[in-house]
Design a protein around this nucleic acid. Structure first.
Lengths: 229, 229
DNA sequence: TTACTTAGTGTAGAAAATACACACTATATT
DNA sequence: AATATAGTGTGTATTTTCTACACTAAGTAA
């Protein structure tokens, strides 16, 4: 019901779990707070939703301010609003995750005002997080696991051209388990959204792998179909 | 980021898509508004989140006030917050769906203050809805479709004891398609969460079907496993 | 007793999932 | 030039799951 519009003392924010892949590890972007509460703790980046912003815009803005990146794949996944989750009052927060390819140079321009530093930390060794951010992160990882099994979002973590081994590696890191190489290739190729290029990997000291691209057109046609790993 | 706690002119509400099954049709509970905006329109039931309530509690309260029911399966599924979604100001709303068995007697005690009436309407012929509630409903149905394919939530819509035909019927209504009887039975039984009772349906004018119960223990053990229809 | 209505059951063929091992190729090293 | 190294790339047989499909059994009503 929405006909009553009182002035309430609650705050609505967005927090983001920004997943990044640098070719080796899966990481998330954390900031080290320089204000109370939780001064000197690591926290997920977040902010208050602006008055004229949609929720998605707000999430995109947070990401942009922190990294300078735009057009990144982001997805809203859950709202956290326990009365006790923020020591200084009622803050309801909406969580987004994003998938980002790291390892150009542009991936992170460190951030202003409310943080000492911002850093990509591997998900295999995360510090204690401020507020209920551990819970928010856990749920984000769970959601992304489920999503990657059914839709080809793994591409968002890779450069435009990638090898099948790199793609498999992303799946393994997100799902947290090893996959069989031959079966993986069979399945991902049969899904029909990969375009094999006439181009090979460079700068490796072993047999160079064929590069592939993700074919967005073909994917759009398939919409609704699902893979599963 | 959450160290700033300004007093913002935005309102945070919860709206609920309450799915009910009466043995025949899948319905949702709508209320007819008696105040502007959207006076005389049908809308999803909802309310402002109370200061000391968790989000889940708030959703449960809305449901309780409307129907007198407690302990109902509810799930948060998406936040809607476009700046223009409410004509009188910024209202961010969090959507929940619930699954309810209808057809005892207790299912609905109609509601007070802000509504002329509340009614269970079949999803096959819904009226135009107030605000962006059509969008909220659509997304809710989509979520529930996906969920029912993977987890046995269909039980929540049925009485404690039910026949396999009833169960199949629920699946067909939610998924919006016919299922093969033999294949359905094979799969649902092999999932291993049904308990066959020594009891038959009563009061039918044809061969009585065997009754089943949902075995929550077995389900807990299987957690993580998935069916798919 | 008969007619009616729904319950309940099996199988064969197709498709998908899994398990599994070796030869190829590019580079680096001696 | 020969060799070591490290990752690429490929096929098949087996098992499991999915799909399509039709009749008999049981109970009730007339």
């Amino acid at each position: 019901m929405e006909q009553i519009l009182p002035h309430l003392d609650s705050v609505f924010s967005i927090d983001c779990v920004l997943f990044g892949f640098d070719g080796k590890e899966l990481k998330i972007l954390l900031i080290e707070r320089n204000e109370e509460p939780f001064k000197d703790w690591w926290a997920l980046p977040g902010n208050i939703v602006g008055a004229d912003e949609s929720l998605d815009q707000s999430a995109a803005r947070i990401l942009y301010e922190l990294t300078g990146l735009r057009g990144i794949y982001m997805e809203q996944y859950y709202a956290f609003g326990d009365p006790g989750r923020h020591p200084q009052g009622r803050v309801i927060t909406l969580a987004y995750y994003a998938l980002i390819r790291l390892g150009g140079d542009k991936d992170l321009r460190p951030v202003s005002t409310y943080a000492k530093q911002a850093n990509w930390l591997p998900i295999t060794s995360l510090p204690k997080l401020a507020f209920d951010h551990q819970k928010i992160y856990d749920k984000g990882l769970e959601k992304i696991k489920r999503r990657i099994k059914h839709q080809p979002i793994a591409f968002e973590l890779l450069p435009e051209k990638f090898t099948l081994t790199q793609l498999q590696h992303v799946y393994e890191l997100v799902l947290g388990k090893k996959l069989d190489k031959r079966n993986f290739r069979k399945k991902i190729v049969s899904f029909g959204v990969l375009k094999e290029l006439d181009e090979k990997q460079k700068g490796v000291s072993y047999r160079a792998a064929t590069l592939y691209k993700f074919d967005k057109r073909k994917y759009a046609k398939l919409f609704g179909k699902e893979i599963s790993f």
